[in-house]
Write a protein that binds this DNA or RNA. Structure first.
Lengths: 88, 88
DNA sequence: ATAGTATTTAGAAAAAATTCTAAATAGATA
DNA sequence: TATCTATTTAGAATTTTTTCTAAATACTAT
């Protein structure tokens, strides 16, 4: 759950696009998959990496699992960068 | 030179530690290598990735090449994250 | 309970990243 | 020029990441 996992999660373009999609509204795994030319299994793999990094919140509803961006971890990354920059 | 390269560069723990070292003062490749249990060739590999991502500034002096953090690219990453967070 | 839809897990294949050793380049100094 | 030091490049081995197919799980609804 440290920065290592979070930066790794952010390093993949597919995962960054997923986060961008989730910036506005929560989406189910299937809806997310609809935006990519990939199997559901691959989307699930990416969602799992984002989840482990703490970047997602999930909520179950009916038969679906809705994913949403967890902004607090984004803020933590920004703090790390801010410190690196010298604003410590 | 886009975000892809920069996030990839930031995703490795060795490279993040290099950036942290360079936060304060410029260091030569050899000095950087002294902080890690790796060959100079490997350090050079990492420096090259950071350089391509625009995260480093280099200046030659005598026989040495001094590397320093380029904070402006760090700021660009922070802006991307800020936008993701919703501060757009 | 059965059948249907959504998502995840397992295992394997392919691609990318990390590291090393050995050799090459670049510049400095004697 | 010859040599020494600093750094990079080339090539190969290892590890990690990404992706797929096929199967499994989970939950809904008939």
């Amino acid at each position: 759950m440290g920065f290592a996992e979070t930066f790794k999660a952010l390093s993949d373009p597919v995962r960054r696009e997923i986060l961008t999609l989730l910036k506005q509204k929560a989406l189910s795994a299937g809806e997310i998959g609809g935006h990519f030319n990939m199997t559901g299994a691959t989307i699930s793999y990416h969602l799992n990496i984002l989840k482990k990094a703490g970047l997602l919140h999930e909520s179950r509803e009916k038969n679906f699992i809705y994913y949403q961006l967890n902004t607090s971890v984004v803020e933590e990354v920004m703090l790390w960068l801010s410190d690196l920059k010298g604003d410590a």
